[in-house]
Write a protein that binds this DNA or RNA. Structure first.
Lengths: 119, 119
DNA sequence: TGTATATATGAACAGATAATCATATAGATA
DNA sequence: TATCTATATGATTATCTGTTCATATATACA
C-alpha cells in the first residue's frame, strides 16, 4: 500500500531494500550541504588552496603565487570556501590571512588520499 | 634565486610560506584523483546513491525507484562511481547488484555530515 | 586628504556536466 | 533461435562553473 509504484515508472524488485533506503535517507538540507562541501573540494584550485593552508595561515597573494593563478581567481574561490565555513580569515592591516576553519577539512582530504592511493 | 617572481605577476610577501607550501604540494595525479572523487560525491544523485548503498547492495532498478529518477540516469552515475572505484557490482542473472567498494566512502560522508551539522 | 596596496566583487564567456531520449547489449526463457 | 528483461551507452541540450577583465572597497601612509 506504499506509493512506490506511482512515483516512478520503474518496476520495484526489492521492496524491503527500498523501504530501508527510504527510512535512512538523508534530509534535503543534509544532502545540499554535504554536496556543496564535496563539490567545493572537488575543484583543483580549491583543493590546492585547502591543502596549502593545512600547515598554517597564508595571505591571498601568497596563495596566488604558490598556485600560479591570479589573485582574483583565488579570491573568488576563497569566497566559496568561506561561505561553506571551510576557511576563515583574520585581517592584519591590508593583508587578510586565511586558515582552515576546522579539523574536518584536512581529515577529509587525508581520507580521500588514502582511498585513491589504495592498491 | 627562486623563480617565484617569474611565474606569477603576484608580489611575494612570505617567501618561506610559499616555499613550505611548494615542498608539501600534492602531485598532479593526487590532485586529479582526489578532486575527481570529491566531485563525484558532490552531486546530489550520486551522493544519494552512495548513501543508499551503505547498508548493503541494491540493483539499478531499486536505486532508481528509491531516488525517483530514471534508470538511465542512475546507470550513467553508477558508471562514474564505478570508474572511480567508489562502487562495484556483481551480476545475478540479468540483475546487477551494486555495493560500496570500500569503507572510505561512508567514512567520507560521515565526516562531511559531521562538518555541516556542526554548530 | 590623496595615493598606494591588498583584496573583493560583478559581468561575461568558455568549458564542463547531468538529465533525457533513443538505441544497444547481455543474460534468461520460451 | 527469438524474445524479453535489466542495464549500458551515445548524442543532445540546458544548466552550471571557473576564469578573466574591469572595477570597487578598505586599510595604511604620506
Amino acid at each position: 500500500m506504499t506509493d512506490n509504484q506511482d512515483l516512478c515508472q520503474s518496476r520495484v524488485i526489492h521492496e524491503e531494500k527500498i523501504a530501508r533506503a527510504r527510512r535512512r535517507a538523508l534530509g534535503a538540507q543534509d544532502v545540499d550541504c554535504v554536496t556543496r562541501t564535496f563539490k567545493a573540494m572537488g575543484d583543483p584550485t580549491r583543493l590546492k588552496i585547502l591543502w596549502a593552508l593545512e600547515p598554517g595561515e597564508m595571505c591571498v597573494c601568497d596563495i596566488a603565487a604558490h598556485l600560479e593563478v591570479t589573485e582574483s581567481a583565488v579570491s573568488h574561490q576563497l569566497r566559496i570556501l568561506r561561505h561553506l565555513d571551510l576557511v576563515s580569515n583574520r585581517r592584519q592591516g591590508t593583508i587578510l590571512y586565511y586558515r582552515l576553519n576546522d579539523r574536518h577539512v584536512s581529515q577529509l582530504i587525508d581520507l580521500a588520499l588514502e582511498h585513491v592511493r589504495e592498491p
